[in-house]
Design a protein around this nucleic acid. Sequence first.
DNA 1: ACATAATCTTTGTGAATTTCACAAAAATTA
DNA 2: TAATTTTTGTGAAATTCACAAAGATTATGT
Lengths: 253, 253
Amino acid sequence: MTYNRIEAVKKMLKKNKTVTYAQLSNALPDVSVMTLRRDIERLEVEGFAKRIRGGATLIGTLPKNEDTFSKRLRENADEKDLLVKSAVSLIESGRSVFLDSGTTMLALAKILPNKPLSVVTSGPNVALELANRPNTTINLIGGTLNPNNCSVAGASAIMCLKMLNIDLAFISPSGFSLSGGFTVGNYADCEVKKAVIKKASKVIMFLSKHKLDKTLPFTFASLKNVDVLITDLPHYNTIVKKAEMLGVSVITV
Amino acid sequence: MTYNRIEAVKKMLKKNKTVTYAQLSNALPDVSVMTLRRDIERLEVEGFAKRIRGGATLIGTLPKNEDTFSKRLRENADEKDLLVKSAVSLIESGRSVFLDSGTTMLALAKILPNKPLSVVTSGPNVALELANRPNTTINLIGGTLNPNNCSVAGASAIMCLKMLNIDLAFISPSGFSLSGGFTVGNYADCEVKKAVIKKASKVIMFLSKHKLDKTLPFTFASLKNVDVLITDLPHYNTIVKKAEMLGVSVITV
DNA sequence: ACATAATCTTTGTGAATTTCACAAAAATTA
DNA sequence: TAATTTTTGTGAAATTCACAAAGATTATGT
């Protein structure tokens, strides 16, 4: 699969700082060098790598203090992929879709179908991920950048949202518990998510088991605000049951 | 003689608009193709020609379809670094600084001093580049993403700008000519730049020789709107003279 | 001023690398 | 199932690179 291969290339790059096409080809003998070349090209566009003669090198080589975001990026990557995969079928042509910020949404952005869509997002990296899709118009809301989760928020963000309409809102919380609801660690982000939920005609919430029983300071929603819950919890789970009782349509992966 | 040969190459370029190495080699059979290649390379650095596969084309007569951002990223990287280097000394602690979108601004972002700063930008990638600087608060304006130059613009952008104050605005045009002023290829971007210039107490404009005599549809400023011009043109250049006459303080690199 | 050496710049060459265009295969959508 | 898009492989053409040879320039001693 393409995605896995590129992740493997990324991993090699991260470990070795620089790799040659020979090394890559050695580690991934099933694909042609041209393909690896194209993979590296993608990573360069993403700003992840820089091509050098014969191979590539990590961008920003002098490892800046590894920021939390890029760390989370590789955590539970497979689970995230699984979750977001079942989201794409909900997206119809011509819709106005809100994509939250965060690693889960970046994963969703990567596999977003190339239909005519209007995407609104609070994640600059989500926006850039979608940048070269011909059929997608991308609206990034403004605001102050929170480097930890690559999100923008604040007064500007709220104002931008007022100007936009949203059919489907895909949102991913930092934590969830039955008592505290869906929570996030940052006031500004919380306000943005609230504003989005208010505007959206349909709210699709992701809930991975890793987010369970983490309660962060700011609650932006409870189960009853959610229209569709996509989760990797088993269907017999208490939370799932509770959600269904409240009329949420639950997708378990 | 080297000089005569390069003049001959120039002449051919001027006449034909574009030349192939085959044509050049045909006209100048005494030198190797590699030498002609190097001649063209020089002319490119001078901003006179642009290398294309198999030959070169006159600057200013490029095929119109704007080439993609990632490609521009590699182009003239050294010149860009040189330009932006002389910009950092203008940035004082505690200021509110606007960074335009585009490859030049990305280069500036990379070497931005790690002082306490408030950065406002219309480039999502510029924002992300600065994300993990502890002393910098980053404000991204909202709007519709233009994938060609990685900029956001539109009504949201203008509105966000209204909420922000700007001391220093660093702006980079897509083209410049004495008649057309500073131009850009896109209406929304043009409006954003205009709004920034209106708000900023000091406008610092970058002008690389590669931007010369490219006139794009939308003018957002003329020389008299500029406070500081940073350019790689020689000090005796007509444009530089004109700027100085208008009271612009010019920095040549 | 002249010749000679030392240094720097330009040029040619071939091998390694990269780009490009097009066809085949795989995946996605209708 | 067919139609369409995306990904991949292939080989030819173009480009880059490193190094050596040739040429030009500067320095130095006589």
